[in-house]
C-alpha cells in the first residue's frame, strides 16, 4: 500500500518534470528537391527553438521523395507532423482521409506557401539546340526530360505550365493546348518518378537536350554540377508554382507536437526562414528578402493555377487522375 503510493507520487513528479522539459521529435515529409533547403531550415529552427525552450530536446527528422508518393505514404501511415509538398492537391488528398482540416490552405499566409518557384528550362552549355521558348521543345530531334506527372509534383507543374502557355498564345484554345502538350510528351524518352531523378537523368547520364524543371532545382543543379556545363533558359510565359506546407493535425495531436509544428511552419515566413529559402533558390514572399536576392531570380511572366485551371482539385481530376487527359495521350515518337 505504502509502496504503491510512493510509486504514484514518483510517477506524478516525473510527469510534472516531463511537462516542462519535453523530448520532441518532429517529422517533416517533403518532396524531392527540398532536401538541402530543409536540412538548413531544420538546423536553424532547432537552434532557435532550443534557445527559447532550454529544457526541450528537439529532433527534426526529414523524409524526401516524389510529392504524390509522399502524400500516399502519409495516408498509409507515415507519421508526418508536418507536410511540405510540391502542390496543394497532394495535401488535399491527405485532408480527404481526415488527417487535417479541409480548409488547411487558409491557415497560413499566401495560400500556405511560404516560398514560390516557377518552371524553367535547363539546357547544355552553349544551348546547342537553340531552345528559347516552349515551341522549341517540339522541334524535330529535340529530346525533352520531365518526370512522370502521375508520381511527381514538379512534373505536374511542368505539364500545366506547357498547357497554359499554349492556351494563351494568339488563337490558342483547349484543343491546340492539348495537341501541343501531347506532342511535347512524344519528345520525352524517359519519365522518371521524381524531379531529382529527372535531373540526374539529364545532368549525370547525359540524356536529352532540355530538362523542364523547377527553377530552384535548375539553379541548384547548375550550382552543384557546374555552371560551365549548363544554362538556364526562361520561357516567355510560365506558371507560378506555390509549394504549400501544413501541420498534419491528427498526427501532431497524437505526438503532442502541435505547438512546435506550427512554430516550425511559421519560421518559414520569418526573415530568417525567407533568407534560407532564397539561398536555396526558392523565391521568397517577403519583399525585403526578395529585393535583396533579386539578381538571383530572372523576371518571369507567370500565371497561376487558379486563373487558368480553376485550382488544383479541378486540374488533378481533369489531367492526372486515372483516365484523365495524360492517360489519353497516345504514346509514340513525333
Amino acid at each position: 500500500m505504502q509502496a504503491s503510493r510512493w510509486a504514484l507520487m514518483l510517477a506524478m513528479a516525473l510527469g510534472a518534470a516531463a511537462a516542462q522539459a519535453k523530448d520532441l521529435v518532429l517529422l517533416n515529409v517533403s518532396y524531392d528537391p527540398t532536401r538541402e533547403l530543409y536540412a538548413d531550415v531544420n538546423r536553424s529552427f532547432a537552434a532557435q527553438w532550443q534557445a527559447a525552450h532550454p529544457g526541450d530536446r528537439l529532433t527534426i527528422r526529414q523524409s524526401n521523395g516524389g510529392s504524390g508518393k509522399q502524400a500516399r505514404a502519409v495516408v498509409d501511415g507515415l507519421p508526418a507532423d508536418v507536410v511540405t509538398l510540391a502542390l496543394a492537391y497532394d495535401i488535399d488528398a491527405i485532408a480527404d482521409h481526415g488527417l487535417l482540416a479541409a480548409d488547411w490552405q487558409k491557415r497560413l499566409p499566401d495560400n500556405s506557401s511560404p516560398y514560390t518557384s516557377t518552371i524553367v528550362f535547363l539546357v547544355r552549355k552553349g544551348n546547342p539546340k537553340g531552345i528559347r521558348d516552349w515551341p522549341d521543345l517540339v522541334k524535330p530531334g529535340v529530346q525533352v526530360i520531365t518526370p512522370n506527372p502521375k508520381t511527381s509534383g514538379g512534373a505536374r507543374w511542368n505539364f500545366l505550365a506547357a498547357w497554359g502557355w499554349a492556351l494563351k498564345q494568339p488563337g490558342g484554345d483547349e484543343a491546340k493546348a492539348r495537341a501541343y502538350v501531347e506532342t511535347l510528351y512524344k519528345h520525352v524518352p524517359v519519365l522518371d518518378t521524381g524531379a531529382r531523378g529527372a535531373t540526374n537523368t539529364f545532368a549525370q547520364r547525359g540524356v536529352g537536350d532540355v530538362l523542364i524543371a523547377w527553377e530552384n532545382e535548375a539553379l541548384q543543379a547548375r550550382q552543384e554540377l557546374g555552371a560551365d556545363r549548363f544554362e538556364i533558359v526562361v520561357p516567355s510565359l510560365s506558371i507560378l508554382a506555390e509549394p504549400p506546407v501544413a501541420v498534419v493535425d491528427k498526427v501532431a495531436a497524437q505526438h503532442g507536437t502541435q505547438e512546435v509544428a506550427e512554430a516550425y511552419l511559421k519560421f518559414l515566413y520569418t526573415p530568417q526562414g525567407q533568407e534560407i529559402a532564397a539561398r536555396h533558390y526558392y523565391r521568397p514572399r517577403d519583399a525585403a528578402v526578395a529585393a535583396k536576392h533579386a539578381a538571383a531570380f530572372p523576371q518571369v511572366r507567370t500565371f497561376t493555377i487558379d486563373q487558368v485551371f480553376g485550382g488544383w482539385r479541378k486540374a488533378q481530376a481533369r489531367f492526372f487522375a486515372d483516365g484523365g487527359v495524360f492517360d489519353q495521350f497516345k504514346p509514340g515518337t513525333p
Binding site: 505514404a73 495516408v75 498509409d76 501511415g77 507515415l78 507519421p79 482521409h97
Partner: peptide
Amino acid sequence: AQGWFGPWLAAHGLQVIF
C-alpha cells in the same frame, strides 16, 4: 493506415509500416 489491420494497429499505438 488504410490497410486491413491498420485501424487496429493505430488503436493500439503500434507502427509497423514506415
